[in-house]
Amino acid sequence: METALAQPKSKMWGGGKSPFNVSYGKLMMWYFLMSDSFTFGAFLISYGSIRFSLNRWVDHNYVFNKFPFTDANLPLAFVSLMTFILIFSSVTMVLAVHEGHKMNQKGVEKWLVWTILGGLAFLSCQAFEWTHLITHQHEVLVDGVLQHWGTTTSHNPWGPDVMYHGRMVATPGPVAFGGYFFGITGFHGFHVFTGVVINTIMLIKTKMGDFQKRGHYEMIEKAGLYWHFVDLVWVFVFLCFYLI
């Protein structure tokens, strides 16, 4: 140590120090999240590229206008509820991390439970939305024949309307919509699901007093980073699919 300090050139990176002032685990969690952001980025940019290559896309305000227990036309309502749930669960997670800094086991447990509940609520909302899209059928005019289609990865009943026997009927829209929507929200939902699983493991370990014995709650911080990343991705999924 003395000799290492004597050489000013290798002071920072000469060993015995943490140049970034973070532990290895947290550092690698950050780099994993960066690589994951490139995966999501690739999906979303590919979606943007396909949207720009087509003359018509679907109008999201008409595709996503369903709210549970009502048939009213409510564009943006349900997805804003999902967004609020996820932002709120992000806050409860950061409060759990904060209680961990104070070594307050009960506080960590309380806020982790809220975070897990938020994650489960989000997943339930997504399950509802998917079920509604896939099973709710719409009248479509396909090659001069009226059919009834749900929104799936192979069927898109949200194309432009045409006149058919004196009334307006929808035509098939771009097939890519279903693939991108279910693919990207599905991949995000999978992240939420793994986040809930990780948080549940963290809750069990907290309850067993593992972190109290270890002397720090850094695992909660790492799980928290992952959970916030899930929220961060949703901000962009929300933008790309529901707002613009």
């Binding site: 008409y62 206008n65 949200w158 194309g159 432009p160 309307d161 045409v162 006149m163």
Partner: peptide
């Protein structure tokens, strides 16, 4: 597509 303007939105 043979639709009279203003077109109705799908859905």
């Amino acid at each position: 597509q043979q639709q009279p303007a203003p077109a109705m939105k799908a859905g």
